[in-house]
Design a protein around this nucleic acid. Sequence first.
DNA 1: TGTTTGACTGGGA
DNA 2: CTCCCAGCCAAAC
Length: 126
Amino acid sequence: MIKATFGWLFLYLPMTQNKDFFAAVYQVVQLIPKGRVTSYGAIANYLGAKQGARMVGWAMNASHVLPDVPAHRVVNRVGLLSGKNHFEHPEQMQELLTLEGIRVINDQIQDFQKVFWDPALELGLP
DNA sequence: TGTTTGACTGGGA
DNA sequence: CTCCCAGCCAAAC
């Protein structure tokens, strides 16, 4: 029984590695509250793809076609705006964050721990 | 069809 | 602190 549960958990990960994974990423990103941020790895972890942070990044790269996906609220694990160069203007990411009350200095989010939003803690199971 | 490249991360030196 | 490396896997060469 325990083995079966574990089996399900491990099977759940590969199951999500499709278009569904991208869709799931966008859903989570849309749930990030204004004034809060999360990381690629946190989203991947929440979706059961603990090592899929790069895929989350790739999903964000393709997210521009969709409206209402606040990609600026996703940063790397230390609070650096690693994706700034993928916006219309490199400074747009910081501008959007600033409008939401998040302070950014040299591409580094200030009080990162305070504004960090962990889907695994804030949301239920995926 | 094989190789390289990242909006990443954790661990080690 | 910095730098390096190995997983990671979809795209783009």
